[in-house]
Amino acid sequence: MEEYQRLSLIDPQRVAKLPTPEKLFLFLSCTGSIEYPGTERAVRIVGEKLGIEFIESVDQTCCTGYMLTCNAVNPQLALASTSRNLSIPQEMGLDVGVFCNGCYGYLRELAHLLHSNPAFKEVGDKANEALGRVKYHGHTKIYHVQELWYRQLEKLTSLVKRPLTGLKIAAHYGCHYLANKDVAIDDAQYPTFHEEIYKALGATSVVYKERRACCGYSVGRGFTHREETVLPHITNKMLSAAAAGVQLMTTTCPGCNTALDREQKTITSRGKHVSIPVIDLSQLIAFALGAPVEQLGFKANTTPVLPVLERFVI
């Protein structure tokens, strides 16, 4: 039995509590839509196959987590933006689906602050009032699409058109989803649900040594540009994946995807050759469900994806 399957720490109660909605508000991610537009498309494709219609809004802005993390703004701005952003799906009577761990983490956290502290709520209420919007009441539920896919794993399995037999895939989970310990469906330190999804798609999962290492995005490319700190770290991670025979890596966060995919060029330029395509989990699922390759936006990747996936396209 594979290592990850022994003693899964997935919380079946939390999984069972997840909805199987017909309609969901799709919260767009800045990094996701700019860096890898194929991700957003893939989310829609998988949603369509599972019977989930995604509604978006041009009024939605950035989740502000970005600026909050690097102290570029004071927290009031983040609170006001979140209150405003979440009042949009509230008005539509929809819950929120996100495809970025960052959006997920920040929306969850800021929404919690908004409905647990009256002073914070007032900041949001004032902003909405000034903009002529309705007040945000804090009842909108926020889900990451990866958990909604896992919730319907059986249905996904039955929809596979391109079984990924023999493809060695490794997971990178990302901190900002799993760190939400009270709501994440799996253990923060030893998650295994992505591996279950790979199995459902017919692929082989690989556990590599640095599987649990951070992507380094925030420290490197994201905000502080400390290349000297982060590059050895990512090099280490990617080389350990290569050593374990990983052919493809998936993420559930465009930030992670950016760091792990784009930096491979830098790593190679410093003399350590590595070439492991990194794509979003939703892209992988959409691919296995038979989505046309040209719709999945693999051209946006720095490390070429098609050499690994092309043999599955009939």
Binding site: E3, R6, L7, L9, D187, A188, Q189, Y190, P191, R212
Partner: peptide, 11 residues
């Protein structure tokens, strides 16, 4: 001890 996934107790 299994509650600390990072230490791998039981795994």
């Amino acid at each position: 001890g299994k509650k600390y996934g990072e230490y791998g107790y039981g795994r």
